[in-house]
């Protein structure tokens, strides 16, 4: 049952991400990401981390993607970006693809020898919160500053365009 669910969710996740890459309509691109995030949440659930699973669904599938789709549907971009046919992009993408495959292989090799620690995964919301506010307090706060910096940057960029 566990294996069946895992392969079902994994196939759904990979399939919808593939659909996202192949589809040329921006709205469909965003829509394909939702089942990908939701099935990723399901995979976390299979790892006996229900809190992370639900938070994954709430934040990514429930909040961020709604905003994406909201904006895409409001602007209503119908046609995709015309494909650029330049030689150097082809070579560059080929090189990047090779690097990605090597990176994946290295990551997979490391994953097989990784010590299995279910301790941190099984930690419920209480332990997670405690760790975030004690041991990982500085990384946690720095991340929030990073996110705010990104937001402020976006606002500054938009404001400049308006003034011109």
């Amino acid at each position: 049952m566990g294996y069946f669910l895992f392969f079902l969710l994994a196939a759904l996740c990979v399939g919808s991400v593939l659909g996202m890459i192949i589809s040329k309509n921006q709205a469909y691109n965003a829509l394909f990401l939702i089942p990908a995030f939701a099935s990723l949440g399901g995979l976390f659930g299979l790892l006996e981390a229900p809190f992370i699973a639900v938070v994954q669904i709430i934040i990514y599938a429930g909040a961020i993607m709604v905003l994406f789709i909201f904006v895409i549907m409001m602007i209503n971009v119908q046609k995709g970006v015309p494909p650029e046919k330049k030689k150097w992009t082809l070579y560059l993408s080929f090189g990047l693809a090779v690097v990605l495959v090597i990176e994946l292989a290295v990551a997979l090799k490391a994953a097989f020898t990784l010590p299995v620690s279910t301790e941190t995964l099984k930690a419920g919301p209480v332990n997670l919160g405690r760790l975030l506010f004690t041991k990982y307090l500085y990384p946690f706060e720095i991340t929030s500053i990073l996110i705010i910096a990104a937001l402020v940057g976006a606002i500054v960029l938009v404001k400049k365009k308006e003034q011109e």
Binding site: A38, F51, V54, G62
Partner: peptide, 25 residues
């Protein structure tokens, strides 16, 4: 009896929004 039942309900309700935005679009 979920460990995170309350969040589960909120997550499902937030996914229900797609029904509205999709039907409109």
């Amino acid at each position: 009896d979920f460990n995170v039942g309350l969040l589960f309900i909120l997550a499902m309700l937030s996914l229900g929004i797609y029904g509205i935005i999709l039907s409109g679009w």
